[in-house]
């Protein structure tokens, strides 16, 4: 159950490390670890000078190019996409690292915590609102909520819906990532729990556990992709209002 919930301590093979003094929880610590891993991997291990990428750099480059071309540029256009690609790269890899860390025994998946995913969705929301105001001005941003060619009584209904829609989008991002990651942890926990409940008779369920584990690797990538893609989509929607 350590994997599923947040704790005020970090469980390592050498015992529990209490984090209360640092005002942290295990998920908070995972966030910091993920951040450090990213800086370590992309800042130091990624060989930027190589004219032709090899090995690990090549693997990361595939992902970087995918995020840049298929998420940022595909949704925001050539100019904005290139400019905002770093944000989506950070978002994608941060979520990916947090997800994958949940699969490593000594770490837990912080994305299984609703507060973490809410924090990430807040980032998207900030870029949505901030970017729209920066691009279209405050009036332009407000105008985005006023649908054109609609009689004013309907507007009374539509404007709040439009405004709520923006927050609902962020909320949907929060819940999707959180629920997926938490569900994965719970399923693996439950299946392994069968062994504990039924003893040796439950051993075959370990195979199922391994299968689910493999699925979780896929889900880790998928959810990082979905979160980033939808962020790009929402950001584009509010930056370029249709009317």
């Amino acid at each position: 159950m350590y994997k599923v919930a947040d704790h005020p301590y970090w469980k390592t093979p050498f015992g529990k490390v209490y984090l209360d003094n640092l005002n942290l929880t295990s998920h908070g610590l995972m966030l910091i670890f993920a951040s450090l891993f990213m800086i370590l991997i992309f800042g130091l291990l990624y060989r930027k000078k190589d004219p032709v990428p090899r090995g690990f750099t090549n693997l990361l480059e595939v992902l970087i190019l995918f995020v840049r071309d298929k998420i940022a540029i595909a949704n925001l256009g050539e100019h904005d996409g290139r400019k905002m690609a770093p944000l989506f790269l950070s978002l994608f890899f941060f979520i990916l690292f947090l997800n994958l860390m949940g699969l490593i025994p000594i770490f837990t998946s912080a994305t299984g915590n609703v507060n973490v995913t809410a924090g990430l969705a807040l980032v998207t929301l900030t870029v949505m609102i901030g970017g729209a105001i920066y691009k279209n001005g405050l009036m332009g941003f407000i105008h985005a909520f006023i649908p054109h060619g609609v009689p004013w009584p309907v507007m009374i209904l539509l404007i709040p819906i439009e405004i709520m829609g923006m927050f609902i989008k962020a909320f949907a991002l929060t819940m999707r990532l959180f629920a997926n990651m938490l569900a994965g942890s719970i399923v693996v926990y439950s299946i392994i729990g069968l062994v504990i409940v039924f003893g040796a008779a439950g051993a075959p369920s370990l195979l199922l556990g391994v299968a689910i584990y493999c699925l979780k690797v896929f889900v880790a990538f998928l959810q990082a992709f979905v979160f980033t893609l939808l962020s790009a989509l929402f950001i584009n929607q509010i930056h370029h209002p249709a009317h």
Binding site: P86, N115, V123
Partner: peptide, 15 residues
């Protein structure tokens, strides 16, 4: 709220 802010700040610094 603390966790949210922590996430937000960690992500912002990392980014």
């Amino acid at each position: 709220g603390k966790m949210m802010v922590l996430t937000y700040v960690t992500f912002a610094i990392t980014a």
